[in-house]
């Protein structure tokens, strides 16, 4: 593998007496489509919270683009190129869709050149690329579930990330809607963005990922190509129990 974009070494995280992550090692290559699976409570969300900076890991290191980012606050990580969506969508609900996108445009992409940038046009362009432009002036608390998911992806894209973490962006969507979101993620990946997908919908994650890692009880239990993962005995045990 070439120099990894994201290198996680021996990361642990405890909540009180509960060990959520236990010495996780992981490397994601630039441009990779990476799937992260595991049963509920296996530590997937904790892991990506540690990557995005919503939580701080207690031990180990997280390197992004060769730089140790473990001690950085979340907004600094976003500015370095890590963007994410949330498992339960978190729109800025008092704002319109357009304004939601303006936040990362103003605080990440154009924070030094705000006075000479047309952020509205740029937001519209991003919305257009995922066919959400007609909703630009809709208050975000009036969106449907799939529109909300798409807006979260658009907001993440507006930060012009190198790594996008999609946290169950397809939960609760219909088959056609899942295809739509998957198409967006493929397109993003084509443009050079590395993507980590956390997903319960196996079919989607297997179709999308080049490589999949399965977490159970805070540990990586196996890693490999989608075809190998799905038949792996450890994975089946973790999901179905003994």
């Amino acid at each position: 593998m070439a120099e990894p974009l994201l290198q996680i070494t021996n990361v642990s995280k405890r909540f009180g007496g509960f060990t959520a992550l236990d010495g996780v090692d992981l490397a994601v290559a630039p441009g990779e489509r990476f799937g992260l699976i595991g049963p509920n409570g296996s530590g997937k969300t904790t892991l990506i919270n540690c990557i995005s900076g919503s939580l701080r890991n207690e031990s180990g290191s997280i390197r992004f683009g060769g730089e140790d980012i473990s001690a950085l606050p979340a907004y600094q990580r976003t500015r370095r190129g890590i963007a994410r969506s949330f498992q339960i969508p978190r729109p800025f609900s008092s704002m319109t869709v357009m304004e939601n996108l303006m936040v990362p445009l103003e605080f990440v992409r154009h924070r030094h050149t705000l006075h000479r940038s047309d952020t509205r046009a740029e937001a519209l362009e991003i919305l257009g690329s995922i066919s959400l432009a007609d909703k630009a002036d809709t208050p975000s608390n009036q969106l449907s579930q799939v529109e909300l998911r798409k807006m979260e992806l658009a907001r993440a894209m507006a930060a012009r990330p190198r790594l996008l973490i999609s946290d169950e962006a397809m939960a609760g969507l219909s088959g056609a809607e899942i295809d739509e979101v998957l198409a967006i993620l493929f397109k993003l990946n084509d443009s050079g963005i590395t993507i980590i997908m956390i997903e319960h919908i196996m079919q989607a994650v297997m179709r999308f990922s080049q490589r999949v890692v399965c977490l159970d009880a805070g540990k990586i239990i196996c890693e490999g190509a989608p075809g190998a993962i799905i038949t792996n005995a450890n994975v089946q045990r973790a999901y179905l129990g003994n």
């Binding site: 949330f86 729109p91 800025f92 609900s93 008092s94 990440v108």
Partner: peptide, 10 residues
């Protein structure tokens, strides 16, 4: 609106 989302959008 949402402090964690704000932090994660820079």
């Amino acid at each position: 609106d949402n402090e964690e989302a704000a932090e994660c959008t820079g």
